[in-house]
Amino acid sequence: MSEVAGNGPVLRGLQRIGATSLFALELLAQCGPALARPGLIVRQIYNAGARSLIIIMLSGIATGAVLGLQGANLLQRFGSENYLGIAAAFGLLKELGPVLTALLFAGRAGTALTSEIGMMRATDQLTAMQIMAVDPMRYVAAPRFLGGLLAMPLLTAVFNVVGLFGAQLIGVQEMGVDRGAFWSQMQSSIGLSDVNEAIVKSLVFGFVASLIAVYEGYHSDGTAEGVGLATTRTVVASSVLTLLLDYALSAVFL
């Protein structure tokens, strides 16, 4: 981007943050009018959400299985294997679910969003819309942003449920933890506030990842190299911000 060129890396970074913030305001202003076309948003929830389901479920079950395996192994050393249900649920709901879903989202849906909008820029589709007196912020950017924002909590919920199933599968079926203790301990210790934390985190991560993906695509150079670089920036920025924000949010909720 030409307006973010020159000067030192710190200044460039600040300029990028400023440009992204202004873009976010413009995008939020267009979200209201974009809601008038729910069909476009539903299609983007499908693109960002339903099409990410397989990777989310596979990752969820693998993560849960590892939690079940390592958790049971560790807790058995102290004779506390009955607490595996709480450990798995805490880990998944509050940290692993939102964070891993956000990282996977950035890699799967975020890159797809950036490259799609970048290619629309490269092939003059966005310009053509402007000439047809249609604002691409309203027609292209806002529905994709809203689709990503709404898909993230849904994907996180799926990740968590599948992850708990994976933890139970390995912890109970393979490692011999008592099934009743696994579920009853979880039920008695996990409250609504823990679920809320997962929802808030997933919404924040969904906001950040979708905003970055749409911004990078919208402002990519209209070349193959430009779209490639924008896609890379989407993954890097989304992933780093997700991890930083996760710490901040955890500290707030604690």
Binding site: T123, Q125, T127, A128, I131, A133, D135
Partner: peptide, 18 residues
Amino acid sequence: FAMRTRMGMLFQNGALLT
């Protein structure tokens, strides 16, 4: 935008929405 609704433009590559 009002002015653009009175004009049409044919782009070099068509620029159809894919």
